[in-house]
Design a binder for these strands. Sequence first.
DNA 1: CTGTTAGCGCGTTCAG
DNA 2: CTGAACGCGCTAACAG
Lengths: 343, 343
Amino acid sequence: MSVSIHDIARRAQVSASTVSRALQNNPRIGVRTRARIHALAAEMSYVPSDIARSLVTHRTRTIGVLVPAIADPFMGRVIEGIEQAALENGHTVLIGSTQNDPDRERLVINTMRARRVDGVIVMTSHMPSRVNTPGADDAIPLVLFNEQSRDTRTPVVAVDDLRSAEMAVASLIDLGHRDIAYVGVTDRARSNQSRLRGYRQALKTARIAARPTLVIRGRAPHHEQLGFDALSALQQAGATAAFCYNDSVAIGLLAACAAQGVRVPRDLSVIGFDDIDTARFTSPPLSTVRQPRFELGRRAVHMLLRQLNGGERERYVTLGQLIIRESTRAPGTSARAPRRVSQ
Amino acid sequence: MSVSIHDIARRAQVSASTVSRALQNNPRIGVRTRARIHALAAEMSYVPSDIARSLVTHRTRTIGVLVPAIADPFMGRVIEGIEQAALENGHTVLIGSTQNDPDRERLVINTMRARRVDGVIVMTSHMPSRVNTPGADDAIPLVLFNEQSRDTRTPVVAVDDLRSAEMAVASLIDLGHRDIAYVGVTDRARSNQSRLRGYRQALKTARIAARPTLVIRGRAPHHEQLGFDALSALQQAGATAAFCYNDSVAIGLLAACAAQGVRVPRDLSVIGFDDIDTARFTSPPLSTVRQPRFELGRRAVHMLLRQLNGGERERYVTLGQLIIRESTRAPGTSARAPRRVSQ
DNA sequence: CTGTTAGCGCGTTCAG
DNA sequence: CTGAACGCGCTAACAG
């Protein structure tokens, strides 16, 4: 087994509690013995047992993170922000991915409870209420990530999906587009819905009639595939521009365009959401709405920590930032009328 | 605080140890009382404290994962495999990303020791030896991931970088390429080196002289940027094909090609490594060497678990799978026969 | 300034 | 089949 405070107490000719105190730099311990004990601890390569400590302090300094998938270009970066902020504050992170599976979600939540995490950050679009049963008294402090709940008391950090989407679509309208499609997903109920509403709002503001055939949703294991499959429907609906749920969807759509000889942005403008790392490296480089993923992750931790320290429950909802690259431009402006002989 | 076995013992009119046993389905407890206790536990929504349990059992059922970055399309999927296998076996995963920062690595390793993880999976290309100091007796069981160590006793699961790279480059040679470049990275010392050696080996086997200007390495925050920046050097060296360290690098290179009007694969063939999710959706779809990321992650866990159960130390090194899509083809077949209309 | 005593919540002998 | 007692490694009163 690993060395304990007793081992070092014995060699230091003091009691275990003295060692404990010395290691916490308790001023009540003589500076000389304190130094001696520190030296001894280092020499014996002592590593305090967080689990024993947690048992008595009733805090684990662990924050749980509930996420649909880790291998997601958006989530990954958020998690890094979370981890960083947690580390800076002496906490560690326990990640659990639900894979959009309710059973798995239950399992993960249960292990987090068993591990006695101090608090949880929830990024799973599915029913966040599952973490704490309304009536129970054993509620875990939590902050929602990108997941507005109608209950305005629960803390949240998020990008305003609706208004950010509205902004993206408005940028398309400003370019002169009127036949704008929305390519959505099915596995992110809430945010998909919000972005769709933002899309509709933008059309409404511009007094453009909404055409049902222009909103496309599919089902596919990967978001890219879903964007890829959307192209034909887009063409049938006569879209000149597409606002995609996120960059992964947009990347799939771009791939389909390349395969079908549809030129972007000449024949079709495409705009995504998130601004993942690869968005700058698609061809053409993708216009999108940036979410400051790393920073948002950090912010979620800070908010949770403040809450744990008895602070107020806060909410932080911000607007995404429009990033215009080369996948969007005015419709039909191709030098001399492109393919579209539509007339 | 949360309910403990004592709370439920009181209500069940039995002793705490009976509750403990009943909950573990110890056959020594009467089937009737056992059922009663289970019911009571559920009713009181009792969740056993893993930390108290760990303190006495000396196992945490936690496996640490040391990784350079979580937001990495390759790592992310491996981690999901790890998490899945861990979950299936009643273990949880503690992820620590080092961000290629030695200080951070020390910090992460230290918290893993403090948390008393049962074992560790190391995926950080930097000095794996840092986890266990050679002389010490407090070694943590570990398995290396994609990280051959010269010490053949330490367990490892990996794709054979050298031979897989050799295979990729050989495929280029088979197509008729002779001016083949390698686009490498600097932040993954070991695997980069292995793939470079595989590249050289393939050339040697084909009796093609190695030209130093054809091996390109750069430094950039993102791998994509690095690939992007490599194009001009590639052109100067007169390369007709490029083997990239990984798909991210290849994606950056493809972006540069698109921007510069270099047609892939007509003017330049590009092949990557990993087969990340987006590799199928680049334009053109990327040829690459597939690593079965999810499965390898699972395998690493199984190997670690067997080791923890006193099993033998094993090694698993496999070959990547060549996936030829549309970013590679024979060189110069374009010179003045663009589409190559049959005949 | 330091030692003693009590637990934290659970598993595990050892007795009945 | 069940209970009492002990201890895991550490912190926190409470004494000196």
